[in-house]
Every structure is written in C-alpha cells, then in structure tokens.
Nucleic acid binder design. Structure first.
Lengths: 223, 223
DNA sequence: CGACTGGTATGAGGGAAGCTCAGAAATACT
DNA sequence: AGTATTTCTGAGCTTCCCTCATACCAGTCG
C-alpha cells in the first residue's frame, strides 16, 4: 500500500533527480524547465507546485550535492595520521572532487552570479568547510600548527588555491594536480609548523658536540 | 572636420561606455540591452551593428578592464625592491582592486558561466597574470626563489588565494585583508626562499665556535 | 451509487528580454 | 539633383520562466 504522502514524495524526488540531470548536462542557464518537467514525467506547471522557482530547484540540487560531498570527504580522510597528512589527503580529495563535479561547481557559481540575491545552501557548504576547520584547529591543539595563524586565513588560502588550481589543471593537461597539492601542503608545513621545538631539536646535536669539546678543552687547559 | 571613421568610432565608444555603466550597475544578467541603447542614445538595433551579441559587448567591456588593471598594477609596484616585497605590493594591489572592482569580476564570472563557450578576453588576462610571472621568475634569476618551484603552481596559489580572500573579506568585516596578504607572502618566503645561504648564515656562529674550540684542542694535543 | 469537496495536475498563455529585418533616413557619388 | 550605398530604426519574432483557469482524482457523505 502506497500512502498519499509517499506518492507525493516520490514525485518530488523524481523532479529533483530530473533537475539534477538537466542542470548537470546543460548548466543552470541553458537547462530548461520544460526539459526537467518532461524527464520527470509531469507537466511544466507541476514542477512549480514543488519548487517555486528555477532558483529554488537548483538550490535543492546543490543542497544535496554539498551534503554528499561532505560525507565523501569524511570517508576519504585517513584516521589518526598527523595533521599535515590529513590536510594533504583532504586537498587531494577536494581537487579531484572539483574535477569530477565541475558541472555542479559551475552550476553553483552560475546560480550565485545570476541572482545577486541567491544564497547557495550556506548551511551545507559550511558543513563542508568545517571539515578543514576542524582538521586545522586540531592541529593547533596538538601543537603541530602555530596558534597565531587565524584559521580563516589558512582556509581561504586552502580553498582558493585548490579551486583555482582545479580550473587551471582542467584546461591544461601538462599541469600535474599532484604538484599543486604537494606544494600547498609543503608551504603550510614550512610556514605554519610550530617551529620552536624543531629548531631546538635540529641544533641540539651541534650544541652538544660544541659543549663537549669545550669541556674537554677546559679539562686539558686546567690540568 | 570630423571624418566618417571618427564618427563611427565615437558612436562605438559611446555604446561601449554605456554598456560598461549598465553592466557595472546591474550585472551581466540583469543589464538590459534596451537600457544600454537608451544610454548610448541609439536604437536597440544599432547596438547590434557594432556588437553582434550581448556576450560580445561584455567581452569588449572586460577587455578594456583588464588592460586598465594591468597598467595600474605596473604603476603600483615599487621599483628595485626585493622580490618578496614586490610580490606583497602586488598582492595588496590585487586584493584592493578586487574589492573596488567586484562588479567587473562578477561580470566576468557571470559571462563565463552563462555561456560555456564564452571566452574571457584571454589575451588581456594573460597580460595581467604575466605581471606575477615576471616578478616570480626574476626572483628565481636573482637566487631569491628556489628554481624547483613551477611558476604555475605559485601563480595558481597566488591568484586563487587572493580571489577567495577578496570575497570572504568583503562579506565579513571582522576579517582584515592585510592579514591575508601578509600570510600569503610569509608562506611564500618560508617555502620558496632558496634556503641554503640563510641556513648557513644561521649556523655560522655555532660552527665558528666549534671550529675554534677544535683548533685549540688540536694545538694542545699536538704540543 | 451519485453528488460533493479539497487537494493535485495540466498546458495554453502572459510577460520579459535578446535579437532580427524590412523599411526609413542619412550620406556619398556622379 | 538624382541615384546608390551605407547606416539606423523600432515593431515584432522567438524563447523561456512562470501563472492561472480549468480539469482530474480520491476520498466522504447522503
């Protein structure tokens, strides 16, 4: 027995799936409401009973997308390794996701720029961004990352670099995306590592040798 | 005496200026061809004699914009200072230009995403990007930047970070853009500096003390 | 079983915007 | 002055998002 509510939800799902396919295939601007209705097997007017505008429809598609991406990201992170390894894994994931889902990304951008009032499903995007924030701040807690670095600065650098790199490597086969992620993490390590202990550790053997030599010298000269 | 050619060019200029104003005020999508024609003082059909489509028109506007930006950037660079200072000056310039010209930037993005076949005036953009490339490669020539870093990797990081930062600082007054540029350049310095001389310099006093001590030791043991 | 009622679906049509094109106007040429 | 050519015009065509009067459907009651 299929309840009335189930039937409605099933139709809503079908419309959303059709919208997703059409927007991915044609993009937001060129994706036609008529085509979405046709693929969902309903009349054009019916679509508007479920989603008030084309904008709302693309928002729903994107909401689904970001939620999925967050799930995938969490799965892609190696457990228990150090912060920079995890950041690198996340960077690799993000870059390849952008390559794979460039249609969604463009849809996102198109919807945002087409309507200055358009709000990307911010909640879902924030969930995704939080994956980075949490990694980074745990790095601070663990003493692996200098606490003086504002997280937002690193975050903007992380996502900005990767988004730009994704587009640039997509249009030029000679560029190796791996070089970009490796570079990003190397710079993070060079610039964000809490260096004090490391430097001390690096110099310690030298200092020890020096002091041992001086001690021997003192011994000899005093005797 | 005004030649026919001059009259035509004057009209073309007027249309372009009107288009620029309208696109800046309303954005690419919401900017109406009718409004552009009205402001240029010509009929709507006339616009299409000079620019075949709305897309061509925005392309011409953007071409002008990028050319102007390149000129301004070159003027903003301090002469003769070291590479990282120049990069920082360029980063500051770029960030504030993005703030000031966010309408142009959005126009650019809107035009690109609205028509998947749209080509931003690549030549002019390349000219602008070359400002960075030249700074960076001169840094390599001078031995200030490690030559193993591919320029494109640093370039994507530079522009990606700044574009993302520009948007994020625009929508959140608590964020200080200066922190972002300073951070970017600090990371570049930490990660890209040709470190060999610096490390040697850092260790020099220690090594000297060590060698002096060894010398004294040798003196004593041989005598 | 038939009438009624509230929710759901339909698709022709409204409105808006980019673009076209037949004819008008301006300019150049003889 | 008359003709040919170039330039300009704006009503109207097309496309697309969205609306709304109408039709359909599934329960419910007499």
């Amino acid at each position: 027995m299929v309840t009335k509510r189930q039937k409605l939800e099933e139709k809503e799902t079908r419309i959303l799936a059709a919208a997703r396919d059409v927007f991915v295939e044609f993009g937001f601007e060129k994706g036609r409401m008529a085509e979405i209705a046709k693929r969902a097997g309903v009349a054009e007017g019916t679509v508007y009973l479920y989603y008030q505008t084309k904008k709302d429809l693309v928002r729903a598609v994107l909401e689904q997308y970001w939620a999925r991406l967050t799930r995938e990201a969490l799965e892609a992170l190696p457990e228990g390794s150090n912060t920079f390894d995890q950041l690198q894994a996340f960077a690799r994931f993000h870059l390849s996701a952008f390559h794979r889902d460039i249609d969604y990304i463009n849809m996102n951008v198109a919807a945002r720029t087409a309507h200055q009032d358009f709000e990307v499903p911010m909640e879902r995007v924030r969930d995704y961004v939080r994956v980075f924030d949490q990694l980074f701040e745990r790095g601070k807690d663990r003493g692996e990352i200098r606490t003086t670095v504002p997280t937002w600065v690193a975050r903007d650098m992380f996502f900005g670099t990767l988004e730009h790199t994704a587009r640039s490597t997509l249009s030029d086969d000679n560029k190796d995306p791996e070089a970009a992620t490796a570079n990003l993490i190397a710079l993070f390590q060079a610039g964000y590592t809490d260096e004090a202990p490391e430097k001390t550790a690096e110099l310690a053997p030298l200092v020890q040798r020096l002091e041992a030599a001086v001690a021997r010298l003192d011994d000899l000269t005093s005797s």
